[in-house]
Computed example of a mutant assay.
Amino acid sequence: FTRWFVNSVIVSTIVTVINIFLNTMAGYALARLDFPGRQRIYYAFLAFMMVPAQILLIPNFLILSKMGLLDTLTSLILPAAINIGNIFMMRQFFLSFPKDIEEAAEVDGLGRFAT
């Protein structure tokens, strides 16, 4: 039981940290950066949100087995590394966040990553 609990803590901690980092960056890019195809990527994310997770079980299994990652903690972490629902929520947060604060940080000398 102790080993199972430790595995759960390890996986949940790593997935949470990776999710916060990657989903925040993706949400910020979709909300604040101007690049070609931004709206298309956003609409593709919305379309992918409509795909049930159960449909992706077999493709995920096949990919992880070809990579030789079955029966490892990495096989639990990789599929959960990015969550489109969280990207959508972060995008909405950054759209509601005032640009004035971001501009004030830029005036103070912060770069885009530090902001």
Rank of each mutant, 00 (worst) to 15 (best):
F1C: 03
F1N: 12
F1H: 10
F1A: 11
F1E: 12
F1R: 09
W4S: 14
F5E: 08
F5I: 14
F5Y: 11
V6P: 00
V6A: 07
S8Q: 08
S8N: 08
V9F: 04
I10G: 01
S12N: 12
S12C: 05
T13A: 13
I14A: 07
V15N: 05
V15G: 03
T16L: 07
T16P: 01
T16M: 05
T16H: 01
V17H: 04
I18A: 07
I18R: 01
N19F: 05
I20L: 12
F21H: 09
F21S: 15
F21K: 04
M25C: 15
M25S: 15
M25Q: 15
A26F: 09
A26E: 11
G27L: 02
G27Q: 08
G27K: 06
Y28C: 13
Y28I: 12
A29H: 10
A29M: 14
L30V: 15
L30H: 11
R32M: 13
R32N: 14
L33I: 14
P36K: 13
G37A: 12
G37D: 14
R38I: 11
R40P: 06
I41V: 15
I41C: 10
Y42I: 09
A44P: 03
A44C: 12
A44K: 02
F45Q: 04
F48V: 13
F48K: 07
F48G: 10
M49W: 04
M49G: 10
M49V: 12
M50K: 02
V51R: 06
Q54N: 13
L56H: 05
L56K: 08
L57I: 15
I58P: 04
I58K: 02
I58H: 04
P59S: 10
P59D: 11
N60F: 05
L62S: 13
I63M: 13
I63H: 06
I63W: 04
L64V: 11
L64P: 01
M67I: 13
G68P: 09
L69I: 08
L70I: 15
L70Q: 15
T74E: 11
T74M: 05
S75D: 07
I77K: 02
L78G: 00
A80K: 02
A81W: 06
A81D: 06
A81G: 04
A81K: 08
I82L: 11
N83E: 11
N83A: 10
N83C: 03
I84K: 01
G85Q: 09
G85D: 07
F88N: 06
M90C: 07
M90W: 00
M90L: 01
R91A: 07
R91P: 02
Q92D: 12
Q92R: 09
Q92A: 09
F93M: 08
F94R: 04
F94T: 08
F94M: 09
F94W: 06
L95W: 01
F97A: 07
F97Y: 13
P98D: 09
K99H: 04
K99A: 07
E102I: 00
A104W: 01
A104R: 02
E106V: 02
V107F: 00
V107C: 05
G109T: 07
L110E: 06
L110Y: 05
L110I: 00
L110H: 04
G111Q: 01
R112E: 15
F113V: 12
F113H: 02
F113P: 02
A114Y: 00
A114V: 01
A114Q: 12
T115L: 00
